[in-house]
Amino acid sequence: MTSPESRLAELGLTLPEAAAPVANYVPFVQSGNLVHVSGQVSKGRDGLIAGRVGTDLTLDEAKAAARVCALNLIAQLKAACGGDLSKVKRIVRLGGYVNADPAFTDIPQVINGASDLMVEVFGEAGRHARSAIGCAVLPLNAAVEVDAVVEVE
């Protein structure tokens, strides 16, 4: 398996700067060999991907927003690992939250945008347990938010 950084380059992806918290929390906490990454919203280089999925955003747009969340998670992981993503042993769990219209039921397909990227970047170590939950609203009216638990060396 090539390094996660090499995989990101092959995919044509550049990690953003790890975002600073916007409230009273820290971006990640390491306990033993597990890193708990706080929820990362769908804020990319072009700004916040906001709105309600099924009303303001399509499934494909929401899936792309979840991918943005995953890039933000990987940026936090890189910070947690002192800049070396090869220290990631396993993506253990993702929690995915979708700002969804009550009639929108394709929540798992939205969060596949994040799950797919973890496998693309970390290979088999990127396969994880997960929750995918529809919400009435998310912070800043973000379309998607994703958090993670990750095993590191």
Rank of each mutant, 00 (worst) to 15 (best):
S3E: 15
P4L: 01
R7Q: 15
R7H: 13
L13E: 07
L15C: 11
E17V: 00
A19R: 12
Y25D: 03
V26F: 03
V26H: 01
P27D: 10
F28P: 01
V29P: 02
V29W: 01
Q30M: 07
Q30D: 01
S31G: 14
V37H: 05
K43W: 11
R45G: 14
R45V: 14
D46Q: 13
A50D: 09
G51L: 11
D56L: 04
E61K: 09
A64M: 04
A65F: 04
R67D: 05
V68K: 02
A70I: 11
Q76C: 10
L77R: 04
L77Q: 04
A79L: 11
C81E: 09
G82F: 06
S86E: 06
V88S: 04
K89L: 12
L94K: 08
Y97I: 04
N99Y: 01
A103D: 11
D106M: 13
I107E: 10
N112P: 02
G113D: 09
L117Y: 00
V119N: 00
E120T: 02
F122N: 03
G123C: 01
E124G: 12
H128M: 06
S131C: 07
A132W: 05
A132H: 02
A132D: 07
C135L: 07
L138T: 05
P139S: 10
L140Y: 15
L140K: 15
N141H: 14
E145K: 10
V146I: 15
V146Q: 04
A148H: 09
A148F: 06
V150D: 04
V152M: 09
E153I: 08
